[in-house]
Design a protein around this nucleic acid. Sequence first.
DNA 1: TTGACATATTCCGATATCAGCATATACTCT
DNA 2: AGAGTATATGCTGATATCGGAATATGTCAA
Lengths: 115, 115
Amino acid sequence: MPRSATTTDVFNAIGEPRRRMLLDCLIRGEQDVSTLVDKLGWPQADVSKHLSVLRSVDLVVVRPVGRRRVYGINGAGLKPIHDWTSTYEKFWTNHLDRIKARAEAVAAKSKGKTK
Amino acid sequence: MPRSATTTDVFNAIGEPRRRMLLDCLIRGEQDVSTLVDKLGWPQADVSKHLSVLRSVDLVVVRPVGRRRVYGINGAGLKPIHDWTSTYEKFWTNHLDRIKARAEAVAAKSKGKTK
DNA sequence: TTGACATATTCCGATATCAGCATATACTCT
DNA sequence: AGAGTATATGCTGATATCGGAATATGTCAA
């Protein structure tokens, strides 16, 4: 059994760097496909396909404007990832604490104690 | 050009659900491979291989204890993902604002205007 | 309706990834 | 050293994914 599809698993969807670039490009505001093609310099089909994946996991929303399609970020889709990583927050916080503690220990040691 | 390797891209590495399960399993504390195999019920080789990927992107650290290998979470590795999603935080916040705004609009409308 | 433009979808070959099995490495204890 | 345990790695076949080119869908405008 391979990994769950990019079209159903948000984590897998953003596993592709180009899709993160796409989102990073949209972060400044809604844009239509042509604009994205210009900015990114990828073939139009590629942009559409990556957008399609992002759409299927609800990371972006589309709004038809005439013959254009304006894409925007649906932040709610990224929240699960943010929440998941948040559960590990204590690990990097603790890590910093440990570094700090060690630094203080070193400082205390150099002040007087030889052990 | 395919997506960047699971062994070099943290985002891609956690794109695999089993690897997230593995991390979720380790969140309670360091554990050796046998314990993980027991808890998860996967073939030992699979566990080792997924751990290997997590190791290559620095999401876990290993500590040999006799013939055991005790794995622990390296939270610092997840921080980049957390930071990246944080840049989109405003989107889900704004989204809630928008829902609220719309709800208020609907309420105001139903109060008098028939449209 | 016809033509032009904007975007999506389909088909293709190449590649990475997965699970499973078998085997290799590494350590411990006697 | 040799047996046994713990973990890692190599090989294989099936599958998903990617980019690219061609094509299909959809929309406007005259």
